[in-house]
Simulated scan of single mutants.
Amino acid sequence: MSLLQVSHLSKAFGGVQALDDVSFELPAGQLLALIGPNGAGKSTCFNTINGQHKPDGGAVLLDGQDIAGLGPRRISRRGVGRTFQVSAAFHSMTVLENVQAALLSHHRKLGQLWRPAARYYRDEAMQLLQQVGMASQVERACGVLAYGDIKRVELAMALSSQPRLLLMDEPTAGMAAHERNELMALTRQLVSERGISVLFTEHSMDVVFAFADRIIVLARGRLIADGVAADIRRDAQVREVYFGSGSTFEDKPGEGEA
């Protein structure tokens, strides 16, 4: 059985059908990219899986248990972590303090934040920061970090809840090419070492084709393709949705619009 099973998921906002009978699966230990043109329904799909939206129909099964309609906190407790496109780190706090705060939340001890954060989970936070390559910057404030380093801190924060499924929303947005590749190579390493599953949205087609084990494509709320990179590159319907012609992704080097 796959770790994540999305079955006939539907969600409408007023007269707009944002998700229309979407179904896909994500096995353990796989990196799955969710792409599509603007307005395809990617964010709605992400937010429905994570609990920000309650679906109008369908199921979201995590290890066979339906989590559709549960709130984000309850879904997190069941083993789902998330990173966001907009920075979720506290810029006035140090790298170490941000990860310690995430650990306090996971252990349900946020009420202890009135005491110095340095007292709590320091060793566990250091281990996470070592894994994401930020152990040498633990005392720096997040507000002075390079953007790629902030993303590494946020990845450590997401891993603090020991997720089985990690949702990454535009993880490389705003990064230079070398930063994008470094972050996704790190993510792939963590997937392999921890055996977790990752579902990510992404605008850079270079990143998608280089790192995703599998790719699913949404257009106007419907799933139109599901396959490995070579299959998606050749898919005529996907090319039509992206380019409105017979162009291929190779004809559009660099970043594509996802």
Results as ranks from 00 to 15, higher is better:
Lys109Ala: 12
Lys54Ala: 14
Val198Asp: 09
Val238Tyr: 08
Gly58Pro: 06
Gly29Val: 01
Leu26Pro: 09
Asp63Gln: 13
Arg74Thr: 15
Glu202Met: 08
Ala173Ile: 13
Val138Ala: 11
Gln162Lys: 15
His107Glu: 14
Pro72Ala: 02
Lys11Tyr: 00
Leu190Ser: 08
Gly64Phe: 00
Leu129Arg: 06
Ala219Arg: 07
Val6Asn: 05
Ser105Gln: 09
Phe209Gln: 07
Gly41Ser: 03
Pro116His: 06
Ser92Arg: 14
Leu103Ile: 02
Leu167His: 14
Ala101Gly: 00
Ala225Phe: 07
Ile196Pro: 04
Asp149Leu: 11
Asn38Leu: 02
Asn47Cys: 11
Ile67Lys: 09
Ala158Leu: 05
Gly148Leu: 05
Glu240Val: 03
Ala156Pro: 06
Leu186Met: 13
Ile35Arg: 08
Ser192Trp: 06
Leu62Trp: 00
Val207Ile: 13
Ala88Leu: 11
Pro163Glu: 12
Ala229Glu: 02
Gly174Lys: 01
Gly148Phe: 10
Pro171Thr: 00
Asp149Trp: 10
Leu186Phe: 03
Arg122Phe: 02
Gly71Val: 02
Asp123Pro: 01
Gly79His: 04
Asp63Ser: 14
Arg115Pro: 00
Ser245Met: 10
Ala68Arg: 13
Gln100Val: 07
Ser136Phe: 08
Leu4Met: 09
Leu199Ser: 02
Met134Trp: 04
Arg78Gln: 14
Asp20Asn: 14
Pro253Asn: 08
His107Arg: 15
Gly71Asn: 13
Leu19Val: 04
Phe200Trp: 13
Lys42Asn: 02
Ser204Cys: 13
Leu165His: 12
Leu32Gly: 11
Leu31Val: 15
Phe84Asn: 09
Val153Pro: 01
Val60Gly: 06
His106Tyr: 14
Gly79Asp: 10
Gln5Trp: 02
Leu167Asp: 08
Arg234Pro: 11
His8Asp: 14
Thr172Met: 08
Gly195Met: 01
Lys42Gly: 01
Leu19Pro: 02
His8Ala: 14
Ala101Phe: 11
